[in-house]
């Protein structure tokens, strides 16, 4: 039986003293699953993802990520938890004055791996995302699609348990989007990583079994 990677119980999320954006949500995501979270703009998709990587603490209820309750988490435990996650952002969030190779090496450097291991893994991942020829380049020298491939390589570098992707194809053309979806599908299929993607719409050509949650009026429903 697959273990639970994400487990939310009566979860309420919101900012400051404002009304909660997500209310009374109960969901669970098992390992190796590919999950889509969809909803209208401003429905709270990204808010839910932020809570999953500990950027936002639950107002009420519990949220367990990889067995850790993020409601009661302190800074050092949060840092440890994040070493098991791979986060992909719509705006890539690559460090501009680092080469793409160094960007990919970031989670490994944080994990305390030796320079040789970091370099070997970065080279392997650059080959995997078909960017070996751009190795010494800086993020701003790359196209949007290429930057997102680097971001995926970075998210995969440390073999995370869970990949969280916030609208990973939001800024990309059709061809680049296709490449990104394939990379994410491969990560789930080949590495067994759980993938949670927040997106406006699920691509018709995705071609895999996936779980789909839809956010409406602050509540997450599983779409059968």
């Amino acid at each position: 039986m697959n273990s639970l990677v994400v487990d939310a119980k009566n979860l309420c999320l919101g900012y400051g003293r404002d009304e909660p954006i997500i209310t009374e949500t109960n969901i669970s995501i098992s390992s190796h699953e590919f999950v889509f979270i969809t909803g209208k703009s401003g429905s709270g998709k990204s808010t839910f993802l932020k809570a999953m990587y500990g950027e936002l603490l639950p107002k009420k209820g519990d949220l367990n990520i990889c067995g850790v309750n993020v409601k009661k988490i302190n800074n050092s435990k949060l840092n440890l938890l994040r070493r098991y996650l791979g986060i992909i952002f719509q705006d890539y969030k690559l460090i501009e004055n680092w080469t793409i190779e160094k960007n990919i090496m970031l989670p490994l450097m944080i994990g305390g791996f030796s320079k040789n291991v970091c370099h070997a893994q970065a080279t392997k991942l650059l080959r995997h995302v078909k960017l070996t020829h751009k190795m010494g380049k800086y993020p701003l020298e790359l196209s949007g699609g290429e930057q997102q491939r680097v971001a995926i390589a970075r998210a995969l570098a440390h073999n995370p348990v869970l990949i969280l992707a916030d609208e990973p194809t939001g800024n990309l053309d059709e061809y680049s989007s296709e490449v990104i979806w394939n990379l994410l599908k491969n990560a789930q299929a080949q590495l067994g990583t759980t993938v949670v993607v927040v997106t406006h719409h699920i691509p018709a050509t995705i071609g895999i079994n996936y779980k789909h949650f839809f956010i409406d009026k602050g509540v997450l429903y599983e779409v059968p």
């Binding site: 949060l78 840092n79 070493r83 986060i87 501009e96 989670p107 944080i110």
Partner: peptide
């Protein structure tokens, strides 16, 4: 920005 990104990966 760099500090934030590093934080996302558990630095």
């Amino acid at each position: 920005e760099k500090i934030k990104i590093m934080g996302y990966f558990g630095a």
